[in-house]
């Protein structure tokens, strides 16, 4: 089976100014990321703010273009943004954001908004659109009497359902979800996550699920990539990664998740600040916060290497030594 979407060596550089008259500094938000997503697979991307995970998600859709590297969708290079080919392709790949209120138009009813992609991409004859919208609403768990409601009349969970219904309207092959449930209460979050899993399994949609919430990612993703300062530092199946994280950063992330009934004492609390992409440390970007950093980590950038079947890490200590890599 060939991958649905494949990214090769993606790089995104922003120019950031310090102060009003400061000299622009290039910031590498995404710094050489390669990944693949198979049809029907869910790839989780985790990392702190500033790790470049949202930028990466936008680059996969071609909304942010890459300065280096390329994205292949169904084996073909992504057409340039705003061309007719790109727009046609966008029907097959949709984006879901964290804040549904910002993603919805306050002046349109949700049924109209859910039907919009059908109109934009001219997907269904007019007379069939209403019934398809009704099906979509039922699929995401919205009641038919909510069709004529405006976004502000719905709860946060219902709004996110409406956004997801709209994303599904064009029957996409790929859904990129950027923190889709982070703003919801746990009780409602569980409803939406279950719904997304069901829809995905039913329609075999591939998903890139971007989140800082490891617990949610654990329960929705097949495979997980951990990002730190624009690079993937560890990648493995969700089952393996959370059970036995190898990269010290992944270990710290897993350890920082509060578990009800367990005290903080004895857990690894990562010291130091979240990374600032404008001020990238030399060598391994994680070394200033790393408990096991050695001399080599301060000078040489570790490459993402295969450490065992279906598992890769970018760390001199756990994946650097040839002896270990071969074992």
């Amino acid at each position: 089976m060939s991958p649905l979407i494949e990214a090769r060596g993606l790089v995104r550089v922003y120019q950031v100014r310090r102060g009003l008259f400061g000299r622009p500094i290039p910031v590498r938000a995404v710094d050489g990321v390669s990944l693949t997503v198979m049809p029907g697979e869910t790839l989780g991307i985790v990392g702190e703010s500033g790790s470049g995970k949202s930028t990466l998600g936008r680059m996969l859709l071609g909304v942010d273009d890459a300065q280096e590297g390329e994205v292949l969708f169904e084996g073909r290079p992504m057409p340039a943004m705003n061309t007719a080919e790109w727009r046609a392709l966008r029907a097959k790949m949709q984006l879901v954001y964290q804040d549904p209120l910002a993603a919805l138009d306050r002046r349109l009813t949700i049924a109209v908004q859910i039907g919009e992609p059908l109109e934009i991409h001219d997907l269904l004859p007019k007379e069939q659109r209403a019934s398809h919208v009704a099906e979509l609403m039922a699929a995401v768990g919205l009641r038919s009497d909510q069709a004529d409601r405006y976004p502000h009349e719905l709860s946060g969970g219902q709004r996110q359902r409406a956004v997801i219904a709209r994303a599904l309207a064009s029957r996409p092959r790929l859904l990129v979800c950027d923190e889709p449930v982070s703003a919801l209460d746990v009780s409602i979050q569980a409803q939406v996550v279950n719904m997304m899993r069901d829809l995905q399994e039913e329609h075999r949609i591939a998903m890139v699920f971007i989140s800082h919430d490891l617990k949610v990612v654990r329960n929705i993703a097949d495979r997980v990539a951990v990002m730190y300062l624009g690079r993937i530092v560890e990648e493995a199946s969700s089952d393996v990664l959370f059970k036995a994280p190898q990269h010290p950063y992944t270990q710290a992330l897993v350890s920082s998740v509060p578990v009800p009934g367990q005290l903080l004492e004895g857990r690894v609390i990562l010291q130091g600040e979240p990374p600032n992409p404008a001020n990238r440390p030399a060598g391994c970007a994680f070394h200033p916060r790393c408990p096991i950093a050695r001399d080599i980590c301060r000078s040489a950038v570790p490459q993402l290497r295969r450490i065992s079947e279906g598992r890769a890490a970018a760390c001199h200590v756990v994946a650097g030594e040839p002896v270990q890599a071969e074992a």
């Binding site: 009780s187 979050q189 569980a190 409803q191 996550v193 617990k215 329960n219 929705i220 969700s238 998740v257």
Partner: peptide, 15 residues
């Protein structure tokens, strides 16, 4: 409803 980090890739239990 809290998703668990240990254990398998499970369905969540919403309210």
């Amino acid at each position: 409803a809290i998703p668990r980090l240990d254990g398998g890739r499970e369905r969540l239990i919403p309210i």
